[in-house]
C-alpha cells in the first residue's frame, strides 16, 4: 500500500504533474538552458539534487516552525535555507569532488532563485505529505524536470533549423514548440491512478 502510494506520487510528478510542462515551475531554465543536451542534463541533475536536499531540510524545519507558531515565516525561512544550501553544496563540490563541480557547479548559483525548488518545498507542505513522501515527490519532480529538459532539447534542435515567419523567430516559436511538447504530456492524464489504483 505504502509502496503503491509512493509509486503513484513518483510517477505522477514525472508524467501527470510535470513541474515544467504542467505546473509552469522552472520555465526560465527550461527555455534558457535547453539548447544543448549536455547543459540540459547538467542543469536538470543539479536541480534534482538541490530539490531533494532542500526538501530534506525544509520538511523538519516546517515542523519546527509549526511547533513555535512561526508558520508565517515559512517563505523567508525556506528561501534562505535554499540559498545557504546551494552555497554549501557548491563549496563542498568544489573542495571534495572537483569533476562533479565542473559538470554541475556552473548551474548551482542559478538554482537559488529557481521557482521549481522553492515550489516543491512549499507544495510538499501544502499537500500534507510525510517525510518519505516529500522526498519521493522531490526526486520525482526533479526527474520530471530532467525528462522535460531532455525531450525539449531534442525538439529545440529541430526548431532552431526551421524557418518560421520573421516575427516568430527565436523565443516565440520556442514557446509554440513548448506548447506542443506540453500537449503530448496531457495524454498521460489519469494513467498513474489507473496503474497504481490510488
Amino acid at each position: 500500500m505504502i509502496a503503491a502510494k509512493l509509486g503513484a506520487i513518483f510517477f505522477s510528478m514525472i508524467l501527470v504533474n510535470n513541474y515544467v510542462l504542467v505546473k509552469f515551475l522552472g520555465i526560465c531554465p527550461f527555455l534558457g538552458v535547453s539548447k544543448q543536451l549536455s547543459s540540459a542534463v547538467g542543469m536538470a541533475v543539479a536541480v534534482t539534487v538541490v530539490m531533494a536536499m532542500a526538501t530534506a531540510v525544509t520538511w523538519p524545519l516546517q515542523q519546527l516552525l509549526e511547533r513555535f507558531d512561526l508558520v508565517y515565516l515559512q517563505t523567508i525561512a525556506f528561501i534562505l535555507v535554499i540559498a545557504v544550501l546551494v552555497q554549501l553544496l557548491e563549496l563542498f563540490l568544489k573542495k571534495f569532488i572537483p569533476p562533479l563541480y565542473v559538470a554541475l557547479g556552473v548551474y548551482l548559483p542559478l538554482i537559488t532563485t529557481n521557482c521549481a525548488v522553492l515550489g516543491v518545498t512549499i507544495l510538499n507542505i501544502d499537500e500534507g505529505y510525510s517525510y518519505i513522501e516529500s522526498l519521493v515527490c522531490a526526486v520525482g519532480a526533479g526527474i520530471g524536470f530532467l525528462l522535460a529538459m531532455v525531450l525539449f532539447s531534442g525538439v529545440r534542435r529541430r526548431v532552431e533549423d526551421a524557418n518560421p515567419p520573421k516575427c516568430m523567430e527565436g523565443l516565440p516559436i520556442t514557446l509554440i514548440a513548448a506548447a506542443i511538447t506540453a500537449l503530448s504530456f496531457t495524454g498521460f492524464g489519469g494513467i498513474v491512478e489507473n496503474i497504481f489504483g490510488v
Binding site: V22, M168, A179
Partner: peptide
C-alpha cells in the same frame, strides 16, 4: 497548460 505556452508565444 499547452494553451498557456501557445497564447504566450
Amino acid at each position: 497548460p499547452p494553451g498557456g505556452f501557445f497564447v504566450f508565444g
